[in-house]
Computed example of a mutant assay.
Amino acid sequence: MEDMRLFATVVEHTSLNKAAERLNVSQPALSRRISRLEAELGVELFRRIGKRLELTAAGQLTYEFALELRRFHGSYLQKLNAFKTDEAQIVTIGASLTTLQTTLPDLITAMTEKHPSLEIKAVTGKSHEIATLVKERKVDFGLVASAVADDPAITSLPLFDDHLMLVLPRTHFILEKTQLEMADLNGLPMILFAPGTWYRTLTDELLRRHGVKPDVRMEIDSFEAIVRLLSASRAGTLLPKSYLRRQLLEDNDLYVVRVRNLEQTKRTTSLVHGDPAWLTPSIRFLIEETSAFFARGAHLPKELS
């Protein structure tokens, strides 16, 4: 990186002497650095015509790379400076109700551990409501349980695919079966997520597609409440894999049952943001970090994979 910076300065001054003065180093020292760079790359970067330096073809290519490196480094420092201020950096994230309960807690924990001065605010709503908040610039970016298609004002970045899993109390009679099919859910007492969300729509479409009619005992808009009520109600539920953790299951005496057709269901959680011109460098940086967080699979319960 440093040798590339020195090289670019020499190119821009077309003279070792002028570049050395600009860099506040001796001309012999700068000449040695350039010679070392040429030796490392295995090419000549300059043709020396009297006291003037002229780039070779390899030198021109290297100079273009040095400029790109300079630009990238400057952009990085600009983003980094957003986290060096004494004032707390504030980011407002919009989240659909399901992502608020499943993946947002782990993301917030990871972000605040990495950036202690970061202050995160969360606004919840249905996916289309979060999309509207993004367009109106009332949130910096959103996490929704589906892509926002056909809207040129919004960019959707798919983060990960999830699927439903059947969760039952460990004492449930159906666990005596060695193989479960969708038909086994017919008449099964169940607690489902409240209607009106994309997640519940996915569940209803799945049941309708397989002609299954469970005995729906309750409809609740909280995964935590559903989990706590299962054993007492002797009922099952369908929950996204991203929500389930071994400790959660053990604490509530529950068991995950694999059903082939359920594992074929998918929902895509996406990050949505508005016009990139609106985004500050620090918000762009956080969006990149969020994408990287999910790309690493840091949100997934590995013990259930």
Rank of each mutant, 00 (worst) to 15 (best):
1 M>L: 07
3 D>R: 15
8 A>S: 12
9 T>K: 04
10 V>S: 01
17 N>I: 15
22 R>G: 10
24 N>P: 12
25 V>W: 09
25 V>Q: 09
29 A>G: 07
34 I>V: 08
39 A>F: 07
46 F>A: 00
49 I>C: 07
61 L>T: 13
64 E>P: 02
65 F>W: 11
67 L>H: 08
71 R>L: 04
89 Q>N: 09
98 T>C: 05
108 I>H: 06
112 T>S: 09
114 K>H: 06
116 P>L: 00
119 E>W: 11
122 A>S: 10
124 T>L: 12
128 H>V: 15
129 E>V: 14
130 I>E: 04
153 A>E: 13
160 F>D: 04
164 L>C: 07
167 V>D: 00
175 L>V: 04
181 E>Q: 15
185 L>N: 03
192 L>F: 06
192 L>Q: 05
198 W>D: 11
202 L>H: 06
202 L>G: 04
202 L>W: 05
204 D>T: 09
206 L>G: 02
213 K>V: 11
215 D>I: 12
217 R>T: 06
233 S>I: 05
235 A>W: 01
239 L>R: 00
240 P>W: 06
247 Q>H: 12
262 L>K: 10
269 T>R: 01
270 S>I: 03
271 L>Y: 03
273 H>F: 12
275 D>V: 00
281 P>I: 01
284 R>F: 08
285 F>P: 00
286 L>G: 00
288 E>P: 08
288 E>S: 12
289 E>Q: 03
292 A>S: 12
302 K>R: 15
302 K>T: 15
